[in-house]
Design a binder for these strands. Structure first.
Lengths: 140, 140
DNA sequence: GTGTTTGCAAAGTGTTTGCAATTTA
DNA sequence: TAAATTGCAAACACTTTGCAAACAC
């Protein structure tokens, strides 16, 4: 678990991928990697940081999210045409997407399975398979 | 097949869903529904229309795509955080997404299967399951 | 004629970029 | 102090909206 020593933890992560541990990156890394798995958008992370008195610009949040993604610390998920989501769980897994609340949730890996993968078009290789189970409130 | 009599065909489709067959809507419906299954973005459809001397504004293309989608003639597909894709195939099926060319292709339904669907979070119902098989050029 | 639809231009989102000032090593 | 990073504001790409003119019925 990465709940303890969030500062050291975040610092180590940044060092490991050769990103300078600036005040902003450290703070964001702490928010992202100190709890369990998380799903954030640039906006939501920026808002969260501000709520905790961390001064960081939205542009820097965008930069950090992309740098973290490139470094393999995050994974980008495309579910909504308007916003970009980032997932701290970089292992292979799938998602629930709540269309009411616009929120992502991980699907436990054992509870879903794709069988019979198709042959990709000629000259192409499968990069990855994303399954999004779209859910909404039961009643209405 | 809807290849023949594209005008009558498009007209019938619009009538069926109670959308006034205006010149613009008819022209777009003809482009969309006269061939086989298609995947378009607002931009690509607008460009295509212009190429065929059909005068229609981008705003109208957006309106039409949304009206057609609402009417069940199209289906919206979320694969890319920046653009919205619309699919003329509204049956249940999945997609290849080429990350090199930003293009969608249908996956024949028999060649893919999702087994063991997960139980949705409490109070939620599964609306639909989208599988996107991301592919890229084999070499590099 | 009356209500609908169109096209334009303006406004709105979410995101990226250029660059001077600041910070890190 | 040299190189990297930040924050701001401007630019961007895509999409939506308000409204007068044009159109369908």
């Amino acid at each position: 678990m990465s709940t303890k020593r969030p500062y050291t933890e975040a610092l180590a992560r940044l060092r490991a991928v050769n990103l300078r541990p600036t005040r902003q990156r450290l703070a964001l890394a702490k928010l992202l990697f100190s709890g369990g798995d998380r799903h954030v958008t640039a906006e939501s992370l920026h808002r969260e940081a501000h709520g905790k008195q961390i001064r960081v610009s939205l542009a820097t949040v965008y930069n950090a999210l992309h740098q973290f993604t490139e470094a393999g610390l995050l994974r980008q998920v495309a579910v909504d045409a308007t916003r970009s989501y980032f997932d701290t769980n970089t292992r292979h897994h799938h998602h629930f997407f709540s269309e009411d609340e616009n929120t992502l949730t991980d699907i436990p890996d054992e509870t879903i399975a794709v069988s019979r993968l198709p042959t990709p078009p000629a000259g192409k290789t499968i990069d990855r398979v994303d399954v999004v189970v779209r859910v909404r409130k039961s009643d209405l």
